[in-house]
């Protein structure tokens, strides 16, 4: 198994772990974390692919895409957290299905 295979397989596994948590966890904070784990998986795959060129310098294009991706992930995470907090402010719960989670479940502490 090559280095690229290892990175891309681990990246795929991370993506799937995030996907599972996104579907099964009702708490919005868990969903935001799950999305972040999934995007880390995507970055792993891209960084792994960048090594395929051989030689000491990796392909700069996937690296630039990862940089862009990190920034977009940060901003989408911040927006998602702001939405989750507003939902908690308005409804008193930060979970999608209130039946699954006790009212007043802590978002902040």
């Amino acid at each position: 198994m090559s280095q690229t295979d290892l990175y891309t397989l681990v990246g795929s596994a991370l993506f799937v772990i995030g996907l599972y948590a996104l579907m099964t966890r009702p708490h919005l904070l868990h969903k935001v974390l799950a999305l972040n784990i999934s995007s880390s998986g995507v970055f792993f795959v891209l960084v792994g692919i960048a090594r395929r060129v051989g030689g000491p310098v990796p392909d700069p294009l996937p690296h630039a895409m990862v940089l862009t991706g990190i920034v977009v992930t940060v901003s989408s995470t911040a927006f998602a957290l702001a939405l989750a907090k507003r939902i908690y402010t308005e409804t008193g719960t930060a979970a999608l299905d209130a039946a699954d989670v006790d009212v007043g479940e802590s978002l902040g502490g």
């Binding site: 579907m23 099964t24 966890r25 009702p26 699954d100 989670v101 006790d102 009212v103 479940e105 802590s106």
Partner: peptide
């Protein structure tokens, strides 16, 4: 304190 590890 609510159930923190709520699952589907």
């Amino acid at each position: 304190m609510g159930k923190v590890t709520a699952k589907s």
